[in-house]
Amino acid sequence: MKTEKGQPILNIRNLNIWYGDKGILSSLSFEVQEKQVTAFIGPANCGKSTLVRCFNRLNDFTPNFKFTGEILFKGSSLYAEQDATTVRKQIGMVFRRPTLFRGSIHENVAYAARISNVSRTSELNAIVEKNLRRTGLWNEVEGILDETPVQLSTGQQQLLCVARALAAEPEVLIFDEPCGELDPIETVKIETLMRELANDCTLIFATNKRRQAARVSDVAGFLYGGELIEFGATEKIFTNPQDSRTEQYVTGRMG
């Protein structure tokens, strides 16, 4: 949180991933800069989710998951030198479909604080209010904090999930197609929020909507067939791509 904009926070070197014998990603090398939005675009099944799930070690639970290469998080190896639980507290994640935990809205947002043994009510209330305000959900749910979040709309539920992830105070937040289930207006809300969050947090973003990536991201990578075809500033990827496949994809002729 102290370093200036533009420093690499994640360093990926020659990353190869397999599920069993099936290769998913091959020889990926890139850097994710701090406090920027890094987007990964590509057609379905190109390995976007697999790639972003590597950063918070969620792939640990996938049977037959194998990888070679190195992922450095702030200089130390994510897999060899760090504890998975600690990593996941620093690198949060928002999924495609909002998953609500049991209990009230308050309990949902306070989840990360609770599992880190914060138990004072005043502290928890402060955390809940702060993060709901950050996501712009506070005014809508202020009166119903002790009620179940199931009554919220899908977009609000997704915002709640973002608030819940933010409550863990992550340094990096991964969005795995956060708008996959949302309508255009809710999508705009999430996109605006992501731009705001980029001021104090690094964002990694997987999507198959090209325009969304163009709107939101600073840096973009095009994944195709398990390879990182092109990686660079969003502007360049979308206006002046170097590879013909990237050009075909961003102009809509492919995928």
Binding site: F61, R88, I115, C161
Partner: peptide, 19 residues
């Protein structure tokens, strides 16, 4: 997804199991 969301928030195995 429920398990994954909990893990993604930094819960350990025991917390995911009990909660």
């Amino acid at each position: 997804p429920m398990r994954e969301s909990a893990y993604a928030l930094g819960a350990n195995r025991w917390q995911v199991l009990t909660k």
